[in-house]
Simulated scan of single mutants.
Amino acid sequence: MEHVLVTGGAGYIGAHACKALKAAGYVPVAFDNLSTGWRDAVKFGPLHEGNLLDRASLDAAFAAYKPVAVMHFAALSLVGESMKDPGKYWRENVTGAANLADAAVAAGCLDFVFSSTCATYGDQDGVVLDEDTAQLPINAYGSSKLAIEQLLADFEAAHGLRSVIFRYFNVAGSDPEAEVGEQHVPETHLIPLMLDAIAGKRDALTIYGTDYNTPDGTCVRDYVHVSDLVDAHVKGLKWLKDGKASRVFCLGSGDGFSVREVVEASRAVTNRPVPVVEGGRRAGDAAVLVSGSRRAVEELGWEPKRSDISTMIADAWRWHQSEPYER
């Protein structure tokens, strides 16, 4: 069976991608330094402990498994932290990606699926973002991801490294069987923070900013179910294996939900109150970020099956009530 190297394969999205790759007939190799990932999440193929800043560990993984493709999820992704320490984000994300691309080219592994972000677009209110929207990032996280997209174009021109790039916003939910799920230390994502508050694991959910130019004053974001997201990544891999040209795809619902709307949906799904406190805005947060996915639907044949807000919260809640990962 053919191997696929999955960077960040012990993380939330990476672990789901490994499950989807196994179902598609591949052997996923989780390449992870376990700084934020979880050993317990590696259930669908081998774990290769390594660091993207250590070229030797990358070369060892390519030599050991001879992967036919790379799925690159590993990245630092905290917007606020990126504003305070941009050097860390450029070093970890951009240098790490350059090392990975170099190692892939050296190994003759020329199919690359990259998990980018719609944060590359910056704050463009009132626009449904698509693949042709101008990219104007407003934080170092988005800037680092945009740099990687440009890096991949350069590697294709020089070395023939073809890529499929996915841009998307918030990811939520868990696989329906709740085999893997979302757990971060510290936790920063809205839905798991909210479910922690509902379950009594924290005092309350803090809403950061209630004075945005939105209908209820809170930020509006697009959401996609993690199972739908990784299904698109597997379809992106097939796109490359079919010999098609490098392509960018946005993944989103085309509709956004405000923080308050997500809170109300969670109250309805769990039938429990959601303790909430209001805080100030966070640096680097845009007011409204919504993405379309017309190209992915039409060209990849992508069909988001679980990306309604109630299903995402219900699946996340099911995982949240299970035993958490342990170091």
Rank of each mutant, 00 (worst) to 15 (best):
S258W: 01
E298M: 12
Q124E: 06
A20W: 07
A119I: 10
W319V: 10
Y141N: 11
K84L: 13
L251A: 03
L289W: 02
I207T: 11
A316D: 00
A63H: 12
G243I: 08
E264M: 08
S258H: 02
A10K: 05
P67W: 09
Y168R: 10
R327A: 12
L229E: 02
F169G: 08
L151P: 04
K241Q: 15
V79P: 06
I198E: 03
A60V: 06
H72S: 09
L78H: 13
A199L: 14
L110P: 04
G142H: 07
S258Y: 00
K145E: 09
K22W: 08
Y325P: 13
A316C: 02
N99V: 11
Y65L: 08
L78A: 13
L136P: 03
A106R: 13
K244V: 05
D154V: 12
G209N: 04
A286M: 11
A20Q: 13
P304S: 09
Q150E: 12
L146W: 07
F62A: 00
G160E: 01
A178F: 11
P46K: 07
K66Y: 05
V105I: 14
A134W: 04
A172T: 01
R272F: 06
H16L: 11
G173A: 14
G301Q: 06
V269G: 07
P67I: 14
R306T: 02
T206H: 07
G50V: 05
A75Y: 02
H225Q: 02
S35W: 05
H3I: 03
G9A: 07
L21E: 00
V274H: 00
L78Y: 10
Q321R: 15
V171T: 15
G80N: 12
I191Y: 05
L78I: 13
D125N: 15
R260V: 08
V274M: 00
R306K: 09
P86Y: 03
V94Y: 15
D132H: 15
M71L: 14
D111W: 10
I13V: 14
H189C: 12
K235P: 01
D315P: 11
W319R: 14
R281C: 06
E156L: 02
T214P: 04
H225P: 00
K238W: 11
G160S: 00
R267L: 07
A101T: 04
A287Y: 13
V269T: 09
E182T: 12
A134E: 09
Y65C: 00
R202T: 15
L251D: 00
D242H: 04
S144A: 06
F31C: 03
P215R: 07
Y212E: 08
I13S: 02
Y89F: 15
L5C: 08
D285R: 12
H225I: 01
P176C: 11
K244Q: 09
G236N: 00
E303R: 15
V263M: 01
T120M: 09
Y208G: 05
V276N: 00
